[in-house]
Amino acid sequence: MISLNEGIAVDAAHSMKNRKTEFQGVDLKTGKTLFYTDLGNQTINIGEFLAIVEAVKYIIDHDFQPKVIFSDSTTAISWFKNKRTASGKRNAKLMKAEIYLRAMAYWVDEIEIVKWDNRQWGEIPADFDRK
């Protein structure tokens, strides 16, 4: 049974005005921000995908329990499951993320990814709250 109070929630934000894409991950149990990255000018899907990959790295590096990541991005979840993006925008961070997911597949495949249901559960706790 999945608990909405444990795991890592991730989200990304993109500002057209500031030409800035950023993402973060939040520990659902403590509310603490575990990581934050400013990607510069990318797309929201790239930000969401890289947020998931960063959460995977965090779980593996810190033996974080439970091994559950929540994301509200269907596209990023799909890219994660395929261990490959469908982005036309190629860059080093995306390529490294794809390679990491494939190289670490034994550990990556132990991690559960859950689609956060904004309608039912409200805004994902990692949301940047800028709407």
Score class of each variant (00 low, 15 high):
residue 115 K to W: 08
residue 65 Q to N: 14
residue 47 G to Y: 02
residue 96 K to V: 11
residue 22 E to T: 08
residue 109 D to L: 05
residue 17 K to D: 12
residue 48 E to F: 00
residue 24 Q to M: 13
residue 26 V to N: 02
residue 27 D to I: 03
residue 60 I to C: 12
residue 82 N to I: 06
residue 80 F to Q: 00
residue 24 Q to T: 06
residue 106 Y to C: 13
residue 71 S to K: 05
residue 65 Q to P: 05
residue 18 N to V: 11
residue 102 R to N: 09
residue 74 T to N: 15
residue 130 R to M: 14
residue 64 F to E: 05
residue 118 N to W: 07
residue 22 E to Q: 12
residue 81 K to H: 12
residue 77 I to Q: 05
residue 60 I to V: 13
residue 122 G to V: 09
residue 122 G to P: 09
residue 121 W to V: 05
residue 123 E to A: 14
residue 37 T to M: 10
residue 102 R to A: 08
residue 60 I to M: 10
residue 5 N to R: 15
residue 49 F to T: 08
residue 12 A to L: 08
residue 18 N to F: 12
residue 87 S to V: 00
residue 9 A to S: 08
residue 1 M to F: 14
residue 34 L to R: 09
residue 113 I to P: 03
residue 26 V to R: 03
residue 111 I to Q: 01
residue 2 I to G: 09
residue 56 V to T: 10
residue 34 L to A: 10
residue 118 N to Y: 07
residue 2 I to C: 12
residue 4 L to K: 09
residue 19 R to M: 12
residue 32 K to H: 13
residue 89 K to P: 00
residue 76 A to W: 01
residue 89 K to Q: 07
residue 21 T to S: 02
residue 43 T to N: 00
residue 92 A to V: 11
residue 55 A to T: 07
residue 107 W to Y: 15
residue 12 A to G: 11
residue 65 Q to K: 15
residue 87 S to H: 00
residue 95 M to W: 05
residue 40 G to R: 06
residue 119 R to T: 13
residue 107 W to Q: 15
residue 42 Q to E: 14
residue 96 K to W: 11
residue 91 N to E: 03
residue 118 N to E: 15
residue 30 T to S: 14
residue 110 E to M: 11
residue 38 D to R: 11
residue 82 N to V: 06
residue 3 S to M: 09
residue 41 N to W: 08
residue 29 K to Y: 08
residue 30 T to A: 06
residue 26 V to W: 01
residue 101 L to Q: 01
residue 34 L to M: 12
residue 35 F to R: 03
residue 117 D to I: 06
residue 72 D to V: 02
residue 20 K to R: 15
residue 23 F to I: 08
residue 46 I to E: 00
residue 115 K to I: 04
residue 50 L to C: 06
residue 71 S to N: 05
residue 68 V to Q: 04
residue 112 E to P: 07
residue 123 E to I: 12
residue 9 A to K: 03
residue 25 G to F: 02
residue 4 L to Q: 10
residue 69 I to W: 01
residue 16 M to Y: 13
residue 97 A to D: 00
residue 43 T to G: 00
residue 75 T to R: 04
residue 105 A to M: 10
residue 121 W to D: 08
residue 126 A to Q: 07
residue 106 Y to F: 15
residue 83 K to L: 04
residue 5 N to I: 12
residue 35 F to G: 04
residue 57 K to T: 01
residue 53 V to M: 04
residue 81 K to S: 10
residue 112 E to Y: 09
residue 68 V to F: 07
residue 16 M to R: 15
residue 98 E to R: 00
residue 20 K to W: 08
residue 43 T to V: 00
residue 8 I to G: 04
residue 75 T to N: 07
residue 124 I to Y: 05
residue 7 G to A: 09
residue 1 M to P: 13
residue 44 I to E: 02
residue 48 E to C: 05
residue 28 L to P: 01
residue 12 A to E: 03
residue 106 Y to L: 14
residue 114 V to L: 06
residue 101 L to E: 01
residue 108 V to S: 03
residue 36 Y to K: 12
residue 103 A to L: 10
residue 109 D to F: 03
residue 21 T to Q: 02
residue 88 G to Y: 00
residue 15 S to C: 13
residue 102 R to G: 03
residue 125 P to K: 06
residue 15 S to L: 07
residue 99 I to G: 06
residue 78 S to V: 07
residue 55 A to D: 06
residue 113 I to S: 03
residue 59 I to P: 04
residue 105 A to D: 15
residue 87 S to R: 00
residue 125 P to A: 07
residue 16 M to V: 14
